[in-house]
Design a protein around this nucleic acid. Structure first.
Lengths: 193, 193
DNA sequence: TCCATTTCTTGTCATTTGGCAAGCGCCGGC
DNA sequence: GCCGGCGCTTGCCAAATGACAAGAAATGGA
């Protein structure tokens, strides 16, 4: 597996020098996550900062009645970890599970933190990842408030069509904040147009 | 205005030494925001990292039809800024407006970034602020999906009763993701129990 | 104080969404 | 090949919420 994608990702996030990006990329360990296995289970501490080279994953939590609620979909080119658990060393309430066979590279909290403190440009990178995740969620929340379920569905379909190839519709439904029945009806109306 | 609250906040966020916290706190400038005035307007770059000593503010954006949507309420003891605009130096799409007369201390991005790079413990503090904000929003999103409007209302009333003393109900309604009419009806049913 | 504006409530009705259950089709294990 | 479970759809009805408009109450400015 060629680390080009990881190096490019580090550079886009703000790492200026080719050499530094390559050096850091070299510290990541290869990781494979077979389809259906868990990258993170609720109760564990998220300690792997994963750059996903290939595949996709789903994060989910449980509501008070025990139903699964999909909180995020991860795709190739993104970083995968549970923010609170990873940085505050607390037990995760979320699970992260592979929807397909996944491959990528991981680094531990300790290693990552070491690089943050040692390399200023890498701090900017790490912060940028956090900030992008945060504001992505802000956008999603705004959509949840201002858009109809159908609009949210169309947007997801337009922006992340790959998800629909791998995740069952009930996962997508709970991510959109609706039931699988409602999603089915929305899809029906949508296809008739 | 006494900086005790700011110093204590910096320490709780991870700054170990009293002296360092005091030194950093000393670099903040006093700031007053009269009721109804804007701390940040859409189109500007958020460049003040505000520790709010007293008062409360509301952040809001506009949906595609031009309606205001409240995205956050800020209260004393919290930090106020728009994440993406502040760290990525982009124009803010959100407005932040004082609901009451506010007082606190501010520091610019450049100053803050300088301290981040100079003081390791302060980096941990800054990251902790980001992580808490992020996971607070994750919780809110989970509630938006799994809870009814009435449950979200009760929770907000229980956890942030101060908001109800200062924000008009329509602001609270859009924060909860419902119309002001629906909120009014929910309050009616709730008061009859 | 008076007026204009904003806030909040309420009524009516339409729309969206959910809960529940049944049924179909597909896939994997035996 | 058969069976069982899962994923998806659909029908029926109830509940939640929205849209719109009217009116009462509170607020703020001149």
């Amino acid at each position: 597996m060629n680390r080009e994608s990881l190096i490019r990702f580090l550079q886009q996030g703000g790492l200026p020098m080719q050499g530094v990006a390559e050096e850091i990329a070299g510290q990541f360990a290869e990781k494979e996550i077979p389809k259906h296995t868990f990258f993170l289970q609720a109760g564990q501490i998220s300690d792997e900062y994963l750059f996903l080279h290939e595949g996709c994953l789903r994060a989910f939590a449980h509501d008070t009645e025990g139903n699964e609620v999909t909180t995020h979909f991860y795709q190739a080119g993104q970083v995968v970890f549970e923010v609170h658990s990873f940085f505050h060393r607390t037990r995760s309430r979320e699970n992260i599970q592979a929807l397909t066979d996944c491959r990528g590279w991981v680094i531990s909290f300790e290693q990552l933190n070491g690089f943050f403190h040692a390399i200023p440009a890498f701090r900017e990178f790490g912060r940028s990842v956090l900030v992008k995740g945060f504001s992505g969620l802000k956008d999603r929340m705004l959509g949840m408030i201002t858009e109809t379920a159908e609009e949210r569905y169309k947007k997801l379909l337009g922006q992340n069509p790959q998800i629909f190839q791998h995740a069952p519709l009930k996962h997508i439904a709970s991510y959109l904040g609706i039931t699988d029945s409602s999603l089915s009806r929305i899809r029906k109306e949508f296809s008739q147009k």
